[in-house]
């Protein structure tokens, strides 16, 4: 009878009440403290410092400015009073000012157009392209190459895309007008003023769609790839038509994926400032201003701190409501599919 060496059980230590696999002896010196009994423990200040520092940073760059913003939204702060410090409480006057200003209301209207024809259309277009790519192209290499080409615009910085499209859309000598003339859609002397008041918002939507359609495309494509193939084979045996498969199987099963694509694009939509700034600067004559851009103008250009803060809060509320609605929907869908 041979006896085997008793194998050492993996050390499971309890340090500060939690299981740990690290030997306290291996701690750096500043990390260590001795308990009265003589056992080594983590110095009580270590966790406090490690958690405290990031909290301090977040307080400094997020929480303090937010509180500051809420405070000034209810005061008549502007450049003068900001430096003298004698701002006065004005209650909801700033909000009244914002909500009654045409500039804000029409910027909200434009945001609506942008959400509908920009963000929504991008998701729908991205979904359509993703499914077309997956169902229509059977060759894996071709599929990958097309996917990469479609995703390329997304990899450029948005401001650069803005500059690019500003050049492309120039009324004189712009590539787009040239193209339209060359293919005979337009007379040689005609000019489309893409960045003029009637079209400037639509030009922004165009440039943005060019860049961001790939995001919902990627999301939906990966969602489609992970759907179980057996379900599709069952549908083939059942004799379901392609349209039926799309409307009764694919789209319902991709519901939550598409909802996520919507949420991401909608959240981005509120931050849509970069291309506006580069391509039109909100112009001409404020005709392509979106709410965040107006808030930015109010606060940074005109230094109406109080009013800009009110803008920011209203935009925040608007965004919060929309995203909450989406999340509610998502939660409902996910709950219906739990424990699968």
């Amino acid at each position: 009878m041979t006896t085997t060496e008793p194998t050492q059980a993996p050390a499971q230590r309890v340090i500060n009440g939690r299981a740990s696999r690290i030997d306290p002896k291996d701690y750096p010196d500043w990390f260590k403290a001795k308990r009265r009994g003589g056992s080594l423990i983590v110095h009580p200040l270590v966790p406090a410092v490690m958690v405290g520092l990031p909290i301090l940073v977040i307080v400094a760059i997020v929480i303090y400015p937010t509180i500051w913003m809420f405070y000034h939204a209810f005061h008549d702060t502007n450049m003068m009073s900001l430096f003298s410090g004698d701002w006065a409480a004005v209650g909801f006057d700033n909000f009244g000012l914002v909500l009654s200003s045409d500039r804000f209301l029409s910027s909200i209207e434009r945001l609506g157009i942008y959400l509908l024809f920009g963000a929504c259309l991008q998701v729908l277009l991205g979904t359509a392209l993703a499914l077309l790519l997956y169902e229509g192209i059977r060759n894996n290499l071709a599929r990958t190459i097309i996917l990469i080409l479609l995703v390329l615009p997304m990899m450029l910085p948005p401001s650069i895309v803005g500059v690019l499209w500003k050049f492309l859309l120039q009324a004189n000598n712009g590539a787009i007008n040239h193209l339209l003339i060359n293919i005979g859609v337009m007379e040689a002397t005609a000019r489309i003023e893409w960045l003029d008041s009637g079209l400037s918002l639509w030009s922004l939507v165009l440039a943005d769609t060019w860049q961001w359609t790939a995001l919902p495309l990627l999301i939906v494509y990966s969602g489609r790839v992970s759907l179980p193939p057996a379900v599709y084979e069952a549908a083939r045996v059942d004799g379901a038509s392609s349209w039926r498969v799309l409307s009764r199987i694919t789209l319902p099963m991709l519901r939550e994926i598409i909802a996520i694509a919507f949420i991401i694009r909608f959240m981005d939509a509120y931050k849509f400032v970069d291309k506006v700034y580069v391509m039109t600067s909100g112009g001409p004559a404020e005709s392509s201003e979106l709410p965040v851009f107006v808030a930015f103008q109010k606060g940074i250009r005109e230094f109406q701190i109080g009013e800009a803060a009110a803008y920011a809060i209203l935009i925040f509320l608007f965004a919060a409501i929309l995203v909450t609605l989406f999340l509610q929907y998502l939660k409902r869908v996910l709950r219906a599919q739990q424990t699968q």
């Binding site: 057996a230 084979e233 069952a234 083939r236 045996v237 319902p252 099963m253 599919q337």
Partner: peptide, 20 residues
């Protein structure tokens, strides 16, 4: 094609439509 064969098949993974 499968649907014209008057054949019915069950799949090892059942292949039920999860949303229905």
């Amino acid at each position: 094609p499968p649907y014209q064969r008057k054949v019915a098949m069950t799949f090892e993974s059942y292949a039920l439509y999860p949303h229905l």
